[in-house]
């Protein structure tokens, strides 16, 4: 429908005020929710408002959030990676093998990260190079990666990681600030810059909105897709190092179902599951909210599986509610 007759001829020089937009945004809503959850937690439990307890709460989201940053970019670009939790399993298993072979912490860490990158590269190869749909490919690699862990470990487990390895999941950089929390903050900043301040980030949005037009605009669409899968694999590898270090052991069932929590975090953060829009600050806020809610439920002794019902409802609810409101307005 033509809108030419309604729009002014001369385009105003200024963009819409950033403040107005910020106040109307999904992120603003998330801030309100985060504050509400924080207050609810502090009322519900006297133990909540304690620096160390709060620090403990961050472990509920740091590992997932690292993956969620990369996943957010992947989903904005119109793809998805359901194999992230299985990459953790495989990377963790590989670390166990290296550890059992007698290598030290540096080699263990390098192995975990390296395997993550390799898994990401494999997903990227199938999607970007062979042009296969990412949802099916990563459902396949989800079985494949964890399947390899089961082949290696069966019903066994790797334990006995060196003491120095424990730092990544249990160590503190300063006072109550854990290594994971600091890493999370650094990665949040890094991904913010990458997505919102670089050419690469811009091409991610372009591809998510219209891959064909992006290609015609000189963007190396498949290279960007490949890099995004690589990045997601890398972040899964890093998360595998942290998680394995925190748990101190590797079982093939490690991180089962985490892909769901990561996707929930990304969607809750305001990323359009169909691609094209979303922000890193939104994902950071979603991570904090999910961490606080999990922790609050923990303080109230609510079992984990009930927590997962809540997560499922949250995932559907955050998408459904705005749509239902929009429908009622019509």
């Amino acid at each position: 429908m033509s809108d030419a007759s309604h729009t002014p001829r001369i385009i105003p020089d200024r963009l819409t005020s950033p403040l107005t937009r910020a106040l109307r945004s999904w992120e603003a809503l998330l801030v309100v929710v985060a504050v509400a959850v924080f207050i609810a937690n502090s009322i519900a439990s006297p133990y909540f408002l304690d620096a160390w307890n709060l620090s403990d709460a961050t472990f509920n989201f740091t590992e997932k959030a690292m993956i969620a940053f990369a996943m957010a970019m992947l989903i904005i670009a119109g793809e998805i990676d359901l194999s992230v939790a299985s990459i953790i399993a495989l990377a963790s298993t590989a670390m166990g093998i290296v550890m059992t072979a007698g290598f030290g912490t540096p080699a263990i860490v390098a192995t975990g990260i390296g395997v993550g990158v390799l898994c990401g590269a494999l997903n990227g190869f199938f999607v970007a190079r062979l042009g296969l749909p990412s949802i099916v490919v990563t459902i396949g690699t989800m079985s494949l990666f964890r399947g390899i862990s089961y082949i290696v470990l069966g019903d066994q487990a790797f334990t006995g990681y060196p003491d120095s390895f424990a730092y990544f999941g249990q160590g503190y950089v300063w006072w109550v600030f854990s290594f994971e929390l600091v890493l999370f903050a650094a990665l949040a900043l890094g991904f913010y810059v990458l997505l919102h301040r670089t050419n690469f980030g811009r091409s991610v949005y372009a591809i998510g909105n219209n891959p064909m037009a992006a290609l015609f605009s000189g963007i190396r669409v498949n290279r960007v897709r490949f890099i995004l899968f690589l990045l997601t694999g890398l972040m899964s590898g890093i998360a595998a190092v942290c998680l394995t270090s925190r748990l101190g052991s590797t079982r093939p069932s490690i991180a089962t179902g985490m892909e769901l929590e990561v996707v929930t975090m990304v969607v809750l953060g305001g990323v359009n599951i169909l691609g094209g829009s979303g922000t890193i600050p939104g994902v950071v806020l979603a991570a904090v909210i999910m961490g606080l809610v999990t922790f609050g439920f923990g303080l109230l002794n609510v079992p984990g599986i009930v927590m997962s019902i809540f997560l499922g409802l949250l995932l559907i609810g955050v998408i459904a509610v705005p749509r239902l409101i929009a429908r009622m307005r019509r």
Partner: peptide, 20 residues
């Protein structure tokens, strides 16, 4: 009716049904 992508819906209900 709510126009939510099927993968999101069923990822969600998958955990909800197990929780139930």
């Amino acid at each position: 009716k709510v126009d939510i992508p099927p993968i999101v819906v069923t990822l969600g209900t998958m955990t909800i049904y197990r929780g139930i």
